[in-house]
Computed example of a mutant assay.
Amino acid sequence: MTTLDDESGPLPASSDVRVGVWGLGAMGEPMARHLLDARGSLTVHARRERRALIDAGAHWAPTARDLASACDAILVMLPDLPQLDEHLEGPDGLLAGVEGRELLLMIGSTSSPVGVRDLAERLPDGIRVVDCPVSGGQDGATAGTLSIMLGGDTADTDLAASLLEPCGTPVRLGPLGAGEVAKACNQMVVAATIVALGEATELAARSGVDPAALWDLLGGGYAGSNLLASRRDKLVRGDDSPSGIAQYMVKDLGFAADVAAATDTRPALLPALRATFDEIVERGLGERDIAVTRRFTAERSAD
């Protein structure tokens, strides 16, 4: 992989970098809006055209090749690396649009650290990879307050941090893959917290305790968290309409298990969390919001 100082031609200064976003889902679209507002220009690509973004001034790229041709740096907000791999090769693939230029590929998906490093090794010289998974959910993406976990060469992560600052707080945590390790750690805490919140809410309701009063009281103490603030109303109402869907946690916790195995770590809680979210999916609840843990607890209690 090349760096900003290589003779093949460094990227321009961050203010002149042509930025693109690939993937305009619940996280990608609001991040794209912040980048467009901050930079005044943005190229976007997704399975379906987002008319509102185009009307706001973003340029639409019909293919991954068109996106790469128009950009010096691309933020990838796809579910995982396989969705990126599908569109790397071929006449309309991303590689066909690079044409020997420098390109910074910022991987915002929650993915395997090993997979990110493998991707970087497989890509041609001139395409540099930074992993930059995010935490804060759709609320944080909309507000521009995401925690952005960067891994990669220092020069590349410095540029990525400058480009992504409109979306939240970017921090370099180490070499390539470090961001994904941090996200795996984050997802372990999120999974443990939402399971505990779901079980506690159902336990309170079955005991005649008003869940709303419970969380109003306990939210100001050690039980309080950003996740409780974000999901409090959903848990109290039993509303698990999709936002951050539970099924993704199966993948995320699998990556955490891979990191644990690679570092000879023997966690006690992680296996239980994986089993819990596997069961949530098996019960047909995987497409619901992670606040489905309350419904999941109620269903298990009725078995």
Score class of each variant (00 low, 15 high):
267 P>I: 14
95 L>A: 05
229 A>N: 14
113 P>K: 10
156 D>L: 09
55 D>M: 12
71 C>G: 08
46 A>V: 12
9 G>V: 05
273 L>I: 12
225 S>K: 01
237 R>W: 02
234 K>V: 01
160 A>R: 15
53 L>Q: 05
300 R>S: 01
184 A>Y: 15
49 E>V: 10
20 G>C: 02
2 T>C: 06
38 A>Y: 00
40 G>I: 00
192 A>V: 09
237 R>C: 02
125 D>N: 11
67 L>R: 10
166 P>F: 01
272 A>Q: 13
131 D>K: 01
175 P>E: 14
217 L>F: 14
160 A>V: 13
100 G>D: 00
250 V>K: 06
279 E>D: 14
92 D>F: 00
65 R>P: 00
46 A>K: 03
163 L>W: 06
265 T>Y: 08
218 L>V: 14
236 V>Y: 14
22 W>K: 09
148 I>S: 15
225 S>P: 04
264 D>Q: 12
103 L>V: 00
155 A>K: 08
219 G>E: 00
223 A>N: 05
148 I>P: 15
99 E>N: 07
226 N>C: 06
124 P>A: 14
218 L>W: 11
288 R>D: 12
134 V>L: 08
200 A>D: 07
102 E>M: 09
51 R>H: 11
92 D>C: 01
157 T>R: 12
194 I>H: 07
278 D>Y: 00
303 D>S: 11
151 G>M: 14
115 G>L: 13
63 T>V: 02
243 S>A: 11
174 G>E: 14
231 R>Q: 15
237 R>V: 00
48 R>H: 15
24 L>E: 15
229 A>G: 15
205 A>C: 06
31 M>N: 11
20 G>D: 02
189 V>M: 13
174 G>D: 13
53 L>Y: 03
51 R>M: 06
243 S>F: 13
127 I>R: 08
234 K>L: 04
163 L>H: 10
282 E>L: 07
61 A>D: 06
31 M>E: 08
